[in-house]
Simulated scan of single mutants.
Amino acid sequence: MRRAAVAIVAAAATTVLATACGPGDAETGAATAATAAPTSAAGASAGSSAPAPGSTSSPAAKGSPAAPSTGPSKGASTGASAGAAPACAAGDLKADAHQAKERPDGTGIGAAIIGFANTSGHACTLKGFPTVAGAGNGGPGHNMPLTVTHTGSEAAVKLAPGGKAWVKLTFVQVQGEADGYCVSGATPVAFPSLVLGLPEAGSHQVGLDEGLFAECDNKVTTTAVLAVSPS
């Protein structure tokens, strides 16, 4: 009986101890869970507002401006401004001529300025030295080519519609009165008009606004096409 009573007492004590430990453990677990919950929520919040390691955020999501539209790169030419204007055609030009202010001493024409006006509705380009011939019998079919000497350098001259370029012709001057004479002993020649051939721009017959092209030795010195009228 004594042993049975001791066993009963021991069993009761074990039950009390188990009961006493149970609530304490539950409270501790609840407290731990309560403490851990905010931490987990903060972590979840932080995870939703910041990219995960190694991820890339979208610029659109950050409100970045859209990429600019593409277009011609800086300095590129477009449309009609691209490239040089084509060479002037013979039909694009109208020629005129007058005596130059600066000319050799003598009684002949001495020197003449030939102008070429762009009468077309588009820009075109002139370049180079002309050929020169006297129009015999007043017509280009009876030309007398003159020996041409070049002076100065050549450069392309772009003519807008209505624009103008010039060439200066300097002749071997006629001397003396009346029909005059040539220092070389040759006979002076007078042409009512000249025919000038321009590279890629055809041939053009032109007469002086006053008088004739009187010259000696069938020689002429010519500039290339110029953008500014010479004297």
Rank of each mutant, 00 (worst) to 15 (best):
A186T: 08
K127L: 13
A165T: 07
G141K: 14
P161D: 11
H122S: 14
C124S: 09
G141N: 15
T131P: 07
Y181E: 08
V167D: 09
E200K: 13
G106H: 11
H150T: 15
D217K: 09
L194K: 02
S153H: 14
G106D: 00
E210K: 12
V174A: 13
E177I: 04
G139R: 11
S120I: 00
T119W: 06
A165C: 05
V174M: 12
A117H: 15
I113G: 02
P161A: 13
E210M: 08
Q173G: 10
Q175G: 06
A201Q: 03
P145R: 00
P188W: 00
V189D: 14
G176Y: 06
N118K: 09
G138I: 00
T151S: 07
L212M: 15
N118S: 09
V132S: 07
W166Y: 15
E210L: 00
G139W: 13
V189I: 14
G197R: 07
Y181L: 01
V172H: 15
P130K: 04
T125F: 06
E215G: 09
N118Y: 06
L208N: 02
H142W: 05
V183H: 03
Q205F: 04
T170G: 11
P188V: 05
K164T: 13
Q173K: 10
K127I: 10
A201F: 03
G185C: 00
G211W: 06
A201N: 05
Q175L: 15
G110E: 06
L212Q: 13
L159T: 14
K158N: 15
G185P: 07
A165P: 00
G207R: 12
S153M: 08
G108Y: 05
N143E: 07
T147L: 10
L169K: 11
D105A: 13
G163Y: 07
H122Q: 14
V167E: 12
K158Q: 11
G110F: 03
Q173L: 05
P104Y: 04
F116W: 04
G197H: 02
H204C: 02
G211Q: 09
A156W: 11
W166N: 08
D209Q: 12
L194T: 07
T187I: 08
V148M: 07
A190E: 05
L196G: 01
L159M: 12
P188M: 07
F116Y: 15
K158F: 01
L198K: 05
S203Y: 01
G108S: 03
P192M: 12
G138D: 00
N143G: 02
H150K: 14
Q205E: 15
G115R: 10
V132K: 02
A160K: 14
K158M: 14
V148K: 05
S184A: 05
P145L: 01
P145H: 02
Q175M: 13
A186Q: 08
D105N: 12
P161I: 08
E102F: 09
G202S: 03
V195D: 05
G110R: 01
V174G: 03
G180T: 04
G110Q: 01
T147G: 11
N137G: 03
K164R: 12
D209H: 06
T119F: 04
A112E: 09
L196S: 01
H142M: 13
P161M: 08
A117S: 15
E154Y: 02
F213G: 00
T119V: 14
G141W: 00
A123Y: 07
N218G: 00
A112G: 05
F171V: 13
V189G: 11
G141T: 01
